[in-house]
Design a protein around this nucleic acid. Structure first.
Lengths: 323, 323
DNA sequence: CTGAAAGCGCTTACAG
DNA sequence: CTGAAAGCGCTTACAG
């Protein structure tokens, strides 16, 4: 390659990377030779030399869960433009596999690591931090030195949902939550409570029920709420699948949605637009989270960005027929 | 590292890779040193030396389209076990970006390439083939020397769908197809026709309508069919989103599904289970396609697998309420 | 059973 | 404006 152009490898390198000036006609000869031979610089060799792989790792539970493709795409939106490739690892939320994924990514010399995680214990991320790799956690709270967090504003989103319901005249708003008393679901409950309090509605603990995070759970939760002596005229469900379950209950009881009962979910899954009536929901800003995550990583890689921080992405209200 | 264990790099390498015997207590010392230092072999250096990156490239239009995450996961099911990592590139079906993705992946020394493609012209894959990289195309027909194809059995799936309808007593079956007269949609029409012919039903061209590949298109297509002088009692739609549109039409006209009108789709998207009635559909075997694709690539990498071939993955009937 | 040396394909001081 | 040489961290003949 260098021989065909009659120059040294040094000059080829500089012609390609522009790190030092190259005489115009030398550059032309180099480019011609490259064209002619179909030469492509070996990224492995470059990475070995520069100790930059131009690769970012993303560890997630399962790419098949629709939240994660949107996240990955958002990262790629910004990473691609910066010349980075992404390698994705599915861990199924299994801690052993999460640790193994981190090890493999370090061995592959990823320049940065994004981690959407179930069990993340601080220690599991330590190897990456010790290796000097910037890491951002997706979701959860800022808890660890040297790890940025990017997450959606679950509390604010729930508040906005509750306010939307209030604006439209619903007065008694129930919340169908998951089994957990912590994590995003808890933040949503908190946001809902805060919004009601701000509107002057006294808190009523009987209006928050805990059930499973699936369709049947949503159906059961809504039924429990409707069986209350003073039943709600609107229910907020911790996710869209549960809200679809609440719609099932409404249908089974002959309740019109949204006239007799308003229903809202969180996430804006594909099915939210397909059910009848369409589900009004707070869209999970997965793609924006991905973009913010990538930006953060890139900032770290260029040495900027100061101490660990938390970036919070607002959710967006998507109005359809159910509320 | 080698120094701490008191051995050469050669021996460390062999202790780790097992390519030649290492005395038991030497191995132990090496392993201890590794443990103590948290040593992790540099995958870039290894790749450079062996010219194997242990990486597979996957170029797709958009990971956000639910077919592709399932595909990617299927590949990872088998690739992960074999020690490969996957790098995914979104091209949005743009030919320029498709070509760029291939170039980048070759530069990264991927060991194999999977390509799910819109515009694939044979020439676009040529660089990979010249570089000696096994490539498999996802979808389409076997057309190119040196490129395997893995695809779903669209024709067979449509036949199975039609037979299912026939078995359940539906006699007049319409087909709502997309605008295209080629590709998977055309195969599905062909399979449908063949199944009817095999059952002794004379072909009726008026029962096949062409419309857009979306919900409104499906609604329109179903309406057109129902407006026929001799309307169908069942409609097959080229995908689930269109079938959900057909459900809209049935609802609008007060038709009971499946008693007055049976509706079936293709793909088994998430929403198929969420609408009411649940959509009976032919599941797109995306994950199996991914697995088969990865297996094929691995076979090629170990030198096996003979001449280019087409592997066809059957679809699966998913019975729900609509047919 | 083990090691010294070469070399994979780049980039980057260093030198001119 | 350009090149020779070293070196990134591995693996693999070759040798003993």
């Amino acid at each position: 390659m260098a021989r065909l152009a009659g120059v040294s490898a040094t000059t080829v390198s500089h012609a390609l990377n522009g790190r030092r000036p190259v005489a115009e006609d030398t550059r032309r000869r180099v480019l011609e030779a490259i064209e002619q031979l179909g030469y492509r610089p070996n990224a492995l060799a470059r990475g070995l030399r520069t100790s930059r792989s131009q690769t970012i790792g993303l560890a997630i539970p399962d790419i098949t869960n629709p939240f994660y493709p949107a996240l990955a795409r958002g990262m790629q939106d910004v990473l691609g433009a910066a010349g980075y490739e992404q390698i994705i690892s599915n861990t199924d939320g299994d801690r052993r596999r999460e640790r193994a994924a981190i090890e493999r990514m370090i061995a592959r010399q990823v320049d940065g690591l994004a981690f959407a995680v179930f069990h993340t214990h601080a220690e599991d991320l330590a190897p990456a931090i010790e290796a000097g790799i910037p890491v951002v956690r997706l979701g959860g709270r800022l808890a660890q030195h040297g790890v940025d967090v990017v997450r959606s504003d679950d509390e604010g989103a729930a508040g906005e949902a509750a306010r939307h319901l209030l604006e439209w005249g619903y007065r008694r708003i129930g919340f169908v939550s998951g089994p957990a008393a912590e994590g995003p679901a808890a933040e949503r409950v908190a946001g809902y409570r805060a919004a009601l309090a701000a509107a002057g509605t006294p808190p009523d603990p009987s209006l928050v029920v805990h059930t499973d995070f699936d369709r049947a759970g949503g159906a059961r939760g809504a039924a429990a709420l409707l069986d209350l002596p003073d039943p709600p005229d609107a229910v907020l469900c911790a996710n869209d699948v549960m809200a679809i379950g609440a719609l099932d209950t409404a249908r089974a009881r002959g309740l019109r949605v949204p006239q007799d009962l308003a229903v809202m979910g969180f996430d804006d899954i594909e099915a939210a637009a397909m059910v009848v009536p369409g589900l009004t929901t707070m869209a999970n800003p997965a793609r924006e989270i991905g973009r913010a995550c990538a930006r953060r990583l890139l900032d770290r890689l260029s040495g900027g960005a100061g101490p660990s921080a938390e970036v919070v992405i607002p959710a967006r209200l998507v109005r359809r027929g159910s509320a």
